[in-house]
Amino acid sequence: MSTQASTPSPSSHRRRRRVLRPLPLAAAGLLVATGVYALPQLTPGASAATTLRGYADARGVRIGTAVGDSALTSDSSYTAVLDREFNSVTAENAMKWDAVEPTRGGFDWAAADRLVAHAAAHKQGVRGHTLVWYSQLPSWLRNGDFSATQLNSILKSHIDTEVGRYKGRVYAWDVVNEAFNDDGSMRSSLWQTKLGTGYIANALKWAHAADPAARLYINDYNIEADNAKSDALYALAKQLLAQGVPLNGIGFQSHFVVGKLPSTMKANLKRFSDLGLEVSVTELDVRIPLPASAAELAQQSKDYKTASENCLGVPRCAGVTVWGITDKYSWVPSTFTGYGAALPFDERYTAKPAYTGLSKGLDPKA
């Protein structure tokens, strides 16, 4: 597909588990089948119109970012930009299984609680990420050799506990993350191998029971274009809705290489929206070969504008989330050798042309 080289491989996604260190400076209601829904906790005009948050508030949508616990707790410049520019936050790692349940039945909520508390104090929504994923599983689960019955019980208990803990405080969950291979087949994983594809419907049902107001998503990468992978996800989504499974939305991760956004992205998002589903860009970044030239930074600005417009130009687009604030903490350089400069702010928290592009994509008057 046209964006194949622009999106992360499954192995690269695993690398999000590490605590990111600063780079050198050089370097909520259920969406029903009718598609009627309302965005909670948003007040039009609630923030300065010239910020990303201001534009999103004026439009009644989310502008979010992934948040790392280390930066949240140690970098005042980071939190200043976070609170000024974003009305939604996603836990970068703090809500993943290995972080919250490192031992069976033993939970560590410290980092996740910090993010939820910070968001509440700054009137930001929280997007939960992620409940069921093939990666970042603790060793007790990964190596446990559980029977299907045992694994099913473990999965339900984990979802019940985590979603229940944040009931009413998390507006959406990436319930199932990266369930497909690029050819449209189901990814081989602990869940798929032991439980079959039915684990997806069960996970959605259990999450809905734990918090009926939260929006429930399937989230994946390389699905932005009309291709085999997005076709398979579309077929599954249609099937789940026909069965009455509480699926509310699809998350399009949108990890791109500069200048390589798929031309079919908007039409592809629309076909999911036409099913009555929310669509959201959930992990947007646009990486550039280093060192980034002025021309590439200008193109990156256009790409941010186009990506956000591709979503916001579709009915039921709930918003756009970027996978980080600043190049200082970006996952890109450590995952894609020779690439970086992927985010709207540079290492010194100076807004890049990408910030302007994203602003224009969000601005309802643009």
Results as ranks from 00 to 15, higher is better:
L290F: 05
Q41Y: 09
A201H: 11
W109I: 03
T51V: 05
S70W: 15
E92H: 11
A232K: 14
A214R: 00
T197Y: 13
G54W: 00
D160H: 13
R14Q: 15
D226F: 01
A121V: 08
G313H: 08
T51P: 00
V279H: 01
A112E: 06
K305Q: 13
S2D: 15
A232T: 04
P22E: 10
V61S: 04
T306G: 07
S70A: 15
L137H: 01
T193Y: 09
S188K: 14
R62E: 05
A242I: 10
K205I: 10
S76P: 04
V116P: 01
K360N: 14
L236E: 09
D182Q: 13
N219K: 05
P333Y: 12
Y134T: 10
L52Y: 04
Y37V: 10
A46G: 11
R142T: 15
G64S: 04
S6P: 14
L241D: 10
A307R: 03
I63Q: 09
E309L: 09
V126C: 05
L131K: 01
D226R: 07
R114C: 00
V126F: 11
G35N: 00
G168M: 08
A292I: 00
Y134G: 14
I159D: 05
F180M: 08
F107R: 07
A91P: 11
S12F: 05
G338T: 05
N181S: 08
T73C: 12
R104C: 15
K167P: 04
V281P: 03
R169Y: 10
G35A: 04
D220E: 13
T50W: 02
N202R: 11
A119W: 11
G106S: 15
D303W: 07
S280C: 11
Q253N: 12
V170L: 07
S135F: 14
G54S: 09
A66D: 06
D83S: 15
T7Q: 04
L25P: 03
A307E: 08
S74N: 12
E296S: 14
K260G: 03
D83K: 08
R21S: 09
L216N: 13
L137T: 07
S147F: 06
L312G: 00
A117D: 15
L290M: 13
S147C: 14
M95W: 03
V286C: 11
A119H: 05
L358G: 02
R53V: 10
L284P: 02
R142Y: 10
R21L: 14
A294K: 09
P289A: 10
W140G: 00
N248Y: 13
A80Y: 03
P364F: 08
G313S: 07
R348W: 10
I223A: 09
C317W: 10
R104V: 13
R287I: 01
F146S: 11
V132S: 12
F345T: 05
A58G: 14
G45P: 03
R142Q: 14
G340H: 06
N93C: 11
L236C: 06
A91N: 06
R21V: 12
W140E: 02
W140L: 08
A294V: 12
T321E: 09
T282M: 03
E296W: 03
C311I: 00
